[in-house]
């Protein structure tokens, strides 16, 4: 009987019911987003990983203490790691690679990727990657050194290969499409695929 009443109400008010449920889902989404913003980093004792009874728990640095002063972001660790380095907030060291020294980022060319149609083009910035990585971290095992030879695909990236080896694990996740797909076709910055003629 009750099921029948519900069904009749739904048949007569289907648009309203769907609208309300959609709104509810949207509100949950908003609540989650604002909750995440207010409480970006869980305390170690409440992160579902660390043992609150473990002797190390009071000695380890809390994420909010380490990350709280860095430029903020909305995804990943909720900090913009590239800005943190370029603004001098942190200076990550290369102590295990003394031959490299703590060199300033290398001025490698940016790569414009433009093979498939509808999304904005990807302008790959070498510089922000060489802040963190040695050439051998990516070349030649993950990416060919020759421009255009690596057959980069979103399917592989979302599966944790290619860019997805880091983006989605430690670097900002690939759900943030426009961060890489940043150059609209036909815009001033659009260039043919290959090494973009930029400093």
């Amino acid at each position: 009987m009750n099921a029948l009443i519900v069904k009749r109400f739904y048949m007569n008010n289907w648009f309203f019911v769907r609208w309300v449920l959609g709104l509810a889902a949207f509100m949950m989404l908003l609540a989650d987003a604002s909750g995440a913003a207010a409480n970006a980093w869980a305390p170690l004792a409440k992160d579902d990983l660390h043992d609150p009874k473990g002797p190390g728990i009071t000695l380890l640095q809390e994420p909010s203490e380490g990350l709280g002063t860095l430029p903020r972001d909305k995804v990943g660790n909720m900090v913009n790691w590239v800005q943190a380095v370029s603004k001098g907030v942190i200076s990550p060291l290369r102590v295990q690679n003394p031959s490299m020294g703590n060199l300033p980022p290398m001025q490698e060319p940016e790569i414009m990727m433009d093979k498939k149609g509808s999304m904005n083009m990807v302008l790959f910035p070498h510089k922000v990657h060489t802040m963190w990585l040695e050439c051998s971290n990516c070349h030649p095992a993950i990416f060919e050194t020759k421009v255009g030879a690596s057959n980069i695909m979103m399917e592989k990236i979302l599966n944790g290969e290619q860019c997805g080896l880091c983006h989605g694990a430690v670097a900002f996740p690939p759900t943030d499409c426009n961060r890489c797909h940043s150059v609209p076709h036909g815009s001033q910055n659009a260039k043919p695929a290959g090494k973009a003629a930029r400093p």
């Binding site: 380490g66 790691w81 942190i90 990550p92 102590v95 295990q96 690679n97 490299m100 990585l133 971290n137």
Partner: peptide, 9 residues
């Protein structure tokens, strides 16, 4: 990551 580059490890 606050202290070292990726390539360090």
């Amino acid at each position: 990551r606050l202290r070292f580059t990726c390539g360090n490890c």
